[in-house]
Measured scan of single mutants.
Amino acid sequence: MTFKLIINGKTLKGETTTEAVDAATAEKVLKQYANDNGIDGEWTYDDATKTFTVTE
């Protein structure tokens, strides 16, 4: 399955996707991606669209 991350950061905005077997696995990968890029904020997840959003 494809999961999307929408980034609403102070210095970085955009989106990325990852392939994962489930939402929990995708969340780990996407949170690591955000952490690697210095993004720390509030996370939400929409199961209907398989989209995570992080807002700083």
Rank of each mutant, 00 (worst) to 15 (best):
T53D: 02
L5P: 01
N8H: 09
A26W: 01
D22C: 04
T55Y: 15
Q32V: 08
K4D: 02
A23T: 09
T49L: 10
E19V: 15
L30H: 03
D40T: 13
A20C: 06
G41H: 01
F3R: 00
L30V: 04
A23G: 05
T16C: 06
D47R: 08
T53Q: 07
D36T: 08
K28S: 11
D36R: 09
L30R: 00
A23E: 10
K13Y: 13
A48H: 11
G9D: 03
G38A: 08
F52A: 00
D47Q: 12
N35T: 09
K50A: 08
T25R: 09
T53V: 12
N8E: 10
G38V: 04
T49N: 08
K4S: 06
E27W: 13
K4N: 05
I7G: 02
T25W: 07
T16F: 13
A23W: 08
F3P: 00
A34L: 07
K28E: 09
N35F: 12
T44K: 10
T53F: 05
Q32L: 09
D46T: 05
E15Y: 07
L30C: 03
K13T: 12
T2R: 10
A20T: 05
T44Y: 10
K4W: 08
D22I: 03
K4E: 03
I6Q: 05
E56M: 07
A26F: 01
D40Y: 12
T44H: 12
G38E: 06
L30K: 00
I39Y: 05
W43M: 03
T51K: 03
I7C: 04
D46S: 06
N35L: 15
T18I: 14
I39T: 03
T51Q: 04
A34V: 07
K28M: 15
G9A: 09
K4Y: 09
E42V: 15
V21E: 11
E42T: 15
L30I: 03
Y45Q: 01
T44E: 10
F3N: 00
Y33L: 06
K10M: 10
V29K: 11
G38M: 10
L12H: 14
E56P: 07
L5G: 01
Y33M: 05
K13F: 12
Y33I: 06
K28P: 05
I7M: 10
E42H: 10
Q32N: 13
V29F: 12
I7L: 09
I6K: 09
L12G: 13
I7E: 01
T18L: 10
T25N: 10
W43E: 00
T2H: 08
T17N: 08
E27D: 04
Y45K: 01
E19P: 05
D46R: 03
V54W: 02
T2G: 05
M1P: 10
A34C: 09
I7T: 04
E19W: 14
G41I: 03
D40Q: 11
N35I: 14
V21T: 10
T51N: 02
N35A: 15
K31N: 04
D47L: 07
A24I: 13
A20F: 04
A48K: 13
T53S: 06
G38P: 01
L5I: 03
Y45F: 08
F3C: 01
N8I: 15
E27V: 07
M1N: 10
I6M: 08
E27C: 06
I7F: 15
G41L: 02
N8V: 15
T2W: 12
K10I: 14
T44G: 07
F52I: 01
D22E: 05
V29S: 11
D36H: 09
A23P: 09
T44L: 07
I39K: 02
T51I: 07
D46P: 00
T49M: 08
T18W: 10
N35H: 14
L12Y: 13
T2Y: 10
V54I: 12
K10S: 12
L12D: 09
T44S: 11
T16D: 03
K28G: 09
T44V: 11
F52E: 00
D46N: 11
K31D: 02
K10T: 12
K4R: 12
D22S: 08
A20E: 05
G38S: 08
E42Q: 11
K28C: 05
V29C: 06
Y45M: 02
A48I: 15
T49K: 08
T44D: 08
I39M: 05
K28N: 08
A34R: 01
G14S: 12
F52H: 01
A26Q: 00
A24W: 15
K4P: 01
T18C: 06
N35M: 15
T18D: 02
F3Y: 13
A20S: 08
T25K: 07
T25E: 14
E27A: 11
F3Q: 00
F3T: 00
N37R: 12
T55M: 09
I39E: 02
M1Y: 13
F52N: 00
D47T: 09
A24S: 11
N37Q: 13
W43Y: 03
I7H: 05
E27K: 07
D47I: 10
D40I: 13
N37P: 01
T53W: 08
F52P: 00
V21M: 11
G38K: 09
F3K: 00
L12A: 07
A24R: 13
W43R: 00
A26H: 00
D36K: 08
V21C: 08
T25C: 05
K50V: 04
G38T: 04
L12C: 10
A20I: 03
E56H: 05
K10W: 12
N37T: 08
T18P: 01
Y45G: 00
T44N: 14
I39V: 13
L5M: 05
I6Y: 07
G38W: 05
D47C: 06
D40R: 12
N8R: 13
T16M: 12
A48V: 13
T49F: 05
E19S: 11
W43S: 00
M1V: 13
D40K: 13
A23N: 05
T11I: 14
K31G: 04
I39L: 07
N8G: 05
E15F: 08
V29I: 15
F52S: 00
K28Y: 12
K13E: 07
V54G: 00
Q32E: 13
E15L: 03
Y33A: 03
A20K: 03
E27P: 00
K28V: 11
M1S: 12
T51W: 02
Q32T: 09
T17Y: 14
E15A: 06
L5A: 02
T18M: 11
V29T: 12
K4T: 13
L12R: 04
N8P: 03
Y45C: 01
D36V: 09
E15R: 04
V21G: 11
G38Q: 09
E19A: 12
T51G: 02
Q32I: 09
L12S: 10
D22L: 04
N35W: 14
D36P: 01
E15W: 11
L12E: 10
G41W: 06
K28A: 14
T53P: 01
W43G: 00
G41T: 02
T2M: 12
G38N: 15
T16L: 11
E56W: 09
G41Y: 02
V21K: 10
Q32D: 11
L5Y: 02
L5W: 02
A20H: 04
D22A: 03
D47F: 09
G14T: 14
A34E: 01
T16Y: 15
K4I: 09
K50Q: 12
A48E: 14
T17P: 02
T51L: 04
K10H: 14
E27R: 08
K50E: 03
G14Y: 13
G9P: 03
L12F: 15
N37S: 07
N37L: 14
K50M: 11
E19C: 07
D40G: 09
G9K: 07
E19H: 11
D36M: 09
E15T: 09
I6T: 05
K50D: 03
A26K: 00
I6H: 06
D36C: 05
G38I: 04
T2E: 13
F3V: 02
E19F: 15
E15I: 04
N35V: 14
T53Y: 10
I6N: 05
T53L: 06
K28Q: 15
T44M: 11
